[in-house]
Amino acid sequence: MNHKKTAYLGLFAAIAIIFGYVESLIPFFAGIPGMKLGLANLAVLFILEKYSWKEAALVSTVRILVIGFLFGNMFSILYSLAGAALSLTVMTLMKRFSSFSILGVSVAGGVSHNIGQLIVASLIVENTSLLYYAPVLLISGVATGLLIGFLTGEITKRIRL
């Protein structure tokens, strides 16, 4: 890992952490647990585009741990890690094996993130009634995925590393 890349990854981790904080201030809730904009995914998706899944996973993990220790608890860390891991795996596979553009990749990531969190949440509370939220979370995953994908695409075009 060269110095320039190390510096960039540190910068992106910081941005992802700030995005996570900003997001906690936005009351984008609408009565559905787990519905979020996924701003931090902007940074992760950008790194996935510019580098590879390894760097994206590193930044994602650092972000979740820092945000978790600052504002959350053990549960929120577990919960975020599940969503982020599934989402990053799906996005990496999509990027490699499908002809999807960043929009499609981002939508797949958003949807799988929500599904991952829903599954972990159901396991934690040991109650399947949570699965009733699945349709809403699928739709919100598509919507936020499109938005984040579009933004990341525009940013990727403009920033050269």
Binding site: S98, S99, F100, S101, L103, G104, V107, A108, V111, L138, G141, V142, L146
Partner: peptide
């Protein structure tokens, strides 16, 4: 792309 549109619509 058309494929992506189909993907999103099917979700």
């Amino acid at each position: 792309k058309k494929k992506e549109l189909i993907f999103i619509t099917s979700i």
